[in-house]
Amino acid sequence: MRNTKIKLKLLRDIKTDALLIYIRTILEDLIEKINTNEYRLNLGFEEFNEEIKSNILFLLGHLKEAVLNGHELKDIILYEQNRRTNQRLIPNDEALILYYNTIVKEIESNLTEGEHWIPEQVVFALLSEWIVEENKSTQFYPFLEEINYMKLLGMYEYLGQKNIDEELKKNVIKMYKIAASMIKQLKNTHYRVNNKRISKKRVKK
């Protein structure tokens, strides 16, 4: 269930919440696939692989304590809609759904189903863009400051530069572009309270 401790958040903080909910969802799926050998971290150097995995586990461990995942968000929103006779959600919940769906729609528009991608690189690129480049506040999530995003992303850049596999090099570059487009869409999405209509927003799967 959602943390009941009341925190005053601005809309820009809710955007960070939405981004972290998406990232937790992706990382949970990634770790499950790594554990079942459906996905393998392969940066060409074992020390790179170990550091990437260590940071993934560190991040996911903290996110599990701090935010919902996408599936939990969907369940809670459905519960809230069912218990309200007019089907309205509170503005913060409506804003959270809007921002979360924006993120999901953007990556879906850049990746076709079944297409190979590098989820952990996208995660680190998203956080680097949002926290380092956009200088968004991490006051609610101080653990995000403990990750060296530039160092981790530098491993993928090194891989792209040194690897003779041109397809892999293109894929590394594409992941950066996808992350940048996701952050751009999140930045440019604005929530406005509409008191005249019934909310029919749904969380994307």
Rank of each mutant, 00 (worst) to 15 (best):
K5S: 13
K5Y: 13
I6F: 08
K7F: 11
K9Q: 14
D13T: 08
I14K: 00
D17Y: 04
Y22C: 01
I23P: 01
I23C: 01
R24D: 10
I26V: 15
I26Q: 12
L27A: 08
E28Q: 11
D29F: 12
E32S: 14
T36H: 06
E38S: 04
L41P: 02
L41H: 03
L43E: 01
L43P: 02
G44S: 04
G44R: 05
F45D: 15
E46L: 09
N49Q: 09
E50K: 10
I52M: 07
K53D: 12
N55C: 02
N55T: 02
L59G: 01
G61Y: 06
L63H: 01
L68N: 10
K74W: 00
D75S: 10
I77T: 02
E80V: 11
E80C: 08
E80W: 07
L89W: 01
L98N: 01
N101I: 03
I103L: 06
V104N: 03
E108V: 08
N110A: 14
N110L: 15
E113A: 09
E113R: 12
E115C: 05
H116Y: 13
A125I: 07
E133C: 09
E133R: 12
E134A: 12
N135M: 10
S137I: 03
Q139R: 15
L144T: 03
E146R: 07
I147G: 00
Y149H: 04
Y149C: 03
L153Q: 07
G154L: 05
G154Y: 03
M155S: 02
L159H: 07
L159C: 09
N171D: 15
Y176F: 14
I178M: 07
A179H: 00
S181K: 10
K184T: 12
T189L: 00
H190I: 07
N194K: 07
K200H: 08
R202V: 09
K204Q: 13
